[in-house]
């Protein structure tokens, strides 16, 4: 599973990081630091919750095929 983030549209709500700082690392300004994350096994539900928490709706989960 992959997390894909439209970083340019991040408005710094930091709601994803409130779900998991590990999956959704922020920069020093509090904006998302990455555009793509490979979700480690066992963290899939956390990744989905973090994606849903984004008020900007810019986090997409790519499920394994």
């Amino acid at each position: 599973m992959k997390i894909l983030i439209n970083k340019a549209a991040c408005a710094g709500n930091a709601r994803c990081a409130a779900v998991s700082e590990e999956l959704f690392p922020l920069d020093d300004d509090g904006y998302i630091a990455v555009t793509e994350v490979d979700v480690p096994p066992g963290k899939e539900e956390l990744a989905r919750r973090g994606a849903r928490a984004c008020p900007e709706r810019i986090i997409i989960i790519e499920e394994d095929k």
Binding site: G12, A14, A17, A18, L26, D28, D29, G30, Y31
Partner: peptide, 11 residues
């Protein structure tokens, strides 16, 4: 906005 972001960041 950028200069203010760090002082108001979650950290």
């Amino acid at each position: 906005r950028t200069p203010l972001q760090r002082v108001f960041s979650p950290k």
